[in-house]
Design a protein around this nucleic acid. Structure first.
Lengths: 359, 359
DNA sequence: CCGCCGATTTTGAGCGGTCAAACGATCGGC
DNA sequence: GCCGATCGTTTGACCGCTCAAAATCGGCGG
């Protein structure tokens, strides 16, 4: 079954079409330089022989890798959200003619250094950013193209990034819950000092302040689990005036809150509204459904790849890497969309919907 | 910051160490051919210059790709289980000196053909196998190394594979539930005719037969969701004698069943035992926890890579591919482990534990 | 002292492409 | 009718490494 004589090379195509190897190469990479008639003839030969250029050879000569590195964390608590992002990223990268290369390694920067030294990748997509993230600086200093999915807390974050506007999302949640007549809106945040956590907290506070609501019902959960959410809710129920709404920064936490609400004989969505984040599979397991903030993941993936493409301005030997190259360190902030379900029967405004649709 | 003069090449190392380029190459790829003293000297130079061989060049010369292809499905219902497998696979592949390359594409075989033609990968890891799966045959016919995670329903499945012994797992569940005194053990299966579904169904039936229990309480769920699980349970509750145990083939289905049990005012784990599969994050959202069959994912990943390594017997131009090459199409069946929680307080036997530990 | 051998090391020839410069037509302009 | 510009195509060199064959070098038996 396998094609006899092994894979077809560019020389065979050249022979078949009666031209030189370089002409074939030109037809593939710079068609405008080739006479239309020859072009057609070569294309026919390519077709007839089923020629596909050898990636390694092409990349070696062109000093590319055709690959984008992505670090997958080996963790006990995988995030379905990040995995979805990876799926979509794979598709987007593929559309740009390259592929995603996966790697692990606990000392992530070493892994980066290694891949770069081996010329194994053209660039990286960074995920799971934390507040003090050394990766961005390192990559920028070494003139390695990259795009960050998520912001760091570093004042001047090097390199382009894409992120959810978590503050705006939380602000809006407060807004809509206020529309429903809720006035004691609590917040269950994450303990980790990630930008994400800080931003969402900020948005909640801002929202409360905007409506003259007290912003004192605040618990930071130990970790991102259903149990921790339950524990957080018990804390909140300890006070004399219990909240009539709870914004949790994740679906697991929200599910925990939800469960605790029921355990106390209260009705979620009626007595206490509960909202989560990410619209994960978990959101459909609670009775009545969980209201959650959905992130525009497809858009994230697309934007990341777009930004990566436009980072190709780095001339190899020219720039001394002194000023971290001039690739205008752009940042893109995208809005989240509220998915309203039983746990918090929010009525979305026209504007909410438009913003989400136009994302 | 970036090393001036670009990346170090093998010639520079050779020069530095006072040997020829080939000697450096040998130190790296066949150390035994090099005099220990020279070896040390070269190694020192490699270290001093921070040399890392260029992957593209190496692969081009050696006719390898250093990459293993893995197809990620773009689906609306991602499986956290498959994603976990991918994470672990990444780590294992990395240990073998290669990397995972991700790709998508709905016409999967075309994608395979393309990657192979471009010499972009050395082989593939197949996942999400279905009953009539054309991929295995195609790859075998084209002498492309691959390992399948999951069996197909094709009588003689080409190529090596790894899979969970789902039949044994279900049989054992029946066994343990019987130990608990359950005698009306229902089965909520999947409608899709995957080997997985068929095997699990078979195991349940066999278990029931072995204990002289009726194997007639059977529902096949529409799809793999919580809702479908609930619907399935309602079906089961329609009969005059309701089941006292339900084995569901997935956690989402089990959660649906669990929820329905409560809605009917019954106590899960007491009135009706409920079990799921995969020990997914969902298993911890139900009150009391969900008893579930955990798959040995790490082991799967390791085995897959091991099998892939041992497929390197294919000589390039020699074999005509006539007899699908002689790589003894091995299959590896691994046992699952029952994780006992509130929804079905199973007591595991010594043997159960041993089997799982030794996995 | 010489030829032969095995262990080491080096050289030559690619792997399959791309880049850059050289080449041969064609062509309008003077 | 000769010349430089233009277009299209070809040639030479090389990307950075590995493979195979050739070259070098002691050491050893005769």
């Amino acid at each position: 079954m396998a094609r006899p004589g092994g894979p077809v090379t560019i020389r065979q195509v050249a022979l078949h079409a009666g031209v030189s190897r370089q002409t074939v190469s030109n037809v593939l990479n710079a068609p405008h330089r080739v006479d239309p008639a020859t072009r057609r003839r070569v294309r026919a030969s390519v077709e007839a022989l089923g020629y596909r250029p050898n990636r390694n050879a092409r990349n070696l000569a062109a000093r590319r890798a055709g690959l984008i590195g992505y670090h997958v964390p080996i963790t006990d608590t995988p995030s379905s959200f990040m995995d979805r992002f990876l799926h979509l990223l794979t598709a987007e990268v593929e559309d740009s003619g390259r592929h995603v290369l996966l790697f692990t390694g606990t000392t992530e920067i070493d892994a980066y250094a290694d891949l770069v030294a081996q010329r194994a990748v053209d660039g990286f997509v960074l995920a799971n950013t934390v507040e003090e993230d050394p990766r961005h600086r390192w990559l920028a200093d070494h003139d390695v193209p990259f795009v960050s999915f998520g912001r760091t807390g570093n004042g001047e974050q090097p390199g382009p990034w894409v992120d959810l506007d978590g503050a705006a999302a939380c602000h809006r949640l407060v807004d809509r819950l206020h529309d429903l007549g809720r006035s004691r809106i609590a917040f269950v945040g994450g303990r980790g000092r990630t930008v994400q956590n800080l931003e969402r907290l900020r948005g909640w506070k801002a929202g409360c302040t905007a409506f003259d609501l007290p912003a004192d019902r605040l618990v930071l959960a130990e970790d991102d689990t259903v149990e921790a959410g339950g524990a957080a809710m018990r804390d909140l129920l300890d006070s004399e005036v219990i909240p009539d709404a709870v914004i949790a920064v994740s679906d697991p936490l929200a599910v925990g809150v939800h469960r605790e609400v029921r355990r106390q004989g209260l009705r979620p969505g009626t007595d206490v509204a509960v909202t989560g984040f990410d619209d994960s599979p978990l959101a459909s397991v609670v009775d009545g459904g969980l209201t959650s903030v959905r992130q525009p993941v497809e858009r994230f993936a697309r934007t990341v790849v777009d930004l990566l493409e436009s980072t190709n301005s780095t001339t190899t030997s020219a720039g001394r890497g002194s000023t971290t190259s001039a690739n205008s360190d752009r940042g893109v902030l995208l809005p989240g969309g509220i998915i309203s379900r039983g746990s918090a029967p929010i009525r979305l405004t026209e504007q909410d919907l438009n913003e989400w649709e136009s994302r």
